[in-house]
Design a protein around this nucleic acid. Structure first.
Length: 189
DNA sequence: CACCCGATTATCT
DNA sequence: GATAATCGGGTGT
């Protein structure tokens, strides 16, 4: 079951919270890989830690584009990080960083794409999510709600009681905002 | 136009 | 725990 566009046309922080439990699917050249989203972070245009904070550039333009599309950027010149564009009508830009997945389909493929065997660590960390899912810049700006190789769909229902909010990781500004969400307990299949 | 540094991670000690 | 790898915006000359 696919998500509706309106899901992403809400406050970025709410979307980041609600994306937990959703399923990210990628039809790769090696086969189908998918995982349940278990960790996210919200970034909005009025937030100093957000790439869109200083205005629109060639690199971050997707954050200003249509909601439900992909924003992908290179981090530290080495890794790729995957975001979903989400914002309400009164926000000019915003996105949700996908920090970790619980692998569901194509676990063998992920093993080949990465060199770790521990399933818990397969797609843990934003750079590792893109590596394990084989997501590259070719999906920059792609619609994640239309039928294509890379999309999100309804996953499992998460008990709000097991969702934890903490400051975001790896940033030096706006660390007072509790915009990182993850699951306190591992989820069963 | 040069310099600085980051929404990170693998690898080494 | 510390550090290298590596690239393109942002900032200020």
């Amino acid at each position: 079951m696919e998500l509706v566009r309106e899901f992403f046309a809400r406050d970025t922080v709410h979307v980041a919270h609600d994306l937990l439990g959703m399923k990210l699917v990628h039809q790769t050249e090696y086969g189908l890989v998918s995982g349940i989203i278990v960790e996210t972070e919200a970034y909005t245009a009025d937030d100093e830690a957000c790439h869109a904070y200083r205005g629109k550039t060639e690199r971050n333009k997707a954050l200003f584009g249509p909601v439900g599309h992909a924003y992908i950027y290179r981090s530290y010149g080495l890794h790729y990080c995957f975001n979903m564009v989400a914002r309400s009508n009164d926000q000019i830009a915003g996105g949700v960083l996908i920090r970790a997945l619980q692998p569901i389909d194509g676990i063998e493929i992920m093993h080949q794409l990465r060199s770790v065997t521990n399933k818990k660590l397969l797609a843990c960390g934003p750079g590792n999510v893109t590596k394990a899912m084989n997501i590259s810049m070719k999906y920059y700006g792609n619609d994640l709600l239309s039928t294509s190789a890379l999309y999100v769909e309804q996953g499992i229902i998460i008990d709000p009681a097991i969702i934890v909010a903490t400051p975001r990781i790896g940033i030096s500004k706006a660390t007072d905002k509790l915009w990182r969400y993850y699951l306190k307990a591992p989820i069963g299949n």
